[in-house]
């Protein structure tokens, strides 16, 4: 359960920042999860619910997790074609040679959180 460990990191980072901001109750967390970031949205949602329910002093009962998926995109350095990389990430669908570089899809970030000081 890789996602439990990741959610542990997420909660810790938010807790540190919230403490500095004087925020004591978290209502919403927004993540950006790249398609090839190695994190599974469904498993992250499940992990979030577990962390929330076990930390109700810090999360409001109905705190929600919003996941923004970042599409994986690549571009051929030779012909400029942009494509959605599947398995053969570097293979340009036009040139048929491995001349593609990833543009996006690896991001895994905490975008924001919302909370109050009650």
């Amino acid at each position: 359960m890789h996602e439990m460990a990741l959610m542990g990191d997420i909660v810790q980072l938010i807790e540190e920042d919230a403490t500095a901001q004087g925020i004591t109750k978290i209502e919403k967390v927004e993540l950006i999860v790249g398609e090839i970031s190695n994190a599974m949205p469904d498993a992250l949602r499940m992990a979030f619910e577990i962390f929330r329910d076990q930390n109700l002093h810090f999360f409001s009962q109905d705190a929600q997790l919003v996941i923004h998926t970042e599409e994986a995109k690549a571009q051929c350095v030779l012909c400029g074609t942009q494509y959605r990389p599947r398995q053969k990430i570097a293979l340009c669908p036009e040139c048929k040679i491995p001349s593609g570089k990833l543009l996006s899809g690896e991001t895994f970030q905490i975008l924001s959180y919302e909370g109050s000081s009650d």
Partner: peptide, 14 residues
């Protein structure tokens, strides 16, 4: 109150 972080989840690992 909304706080924008844009922090990598793996920040501590990195």
């Amino acid at each position: 109150m909304k706080v924008t972080l844009r922090t990598d989840v793996l920040t501590n690992n990195n």
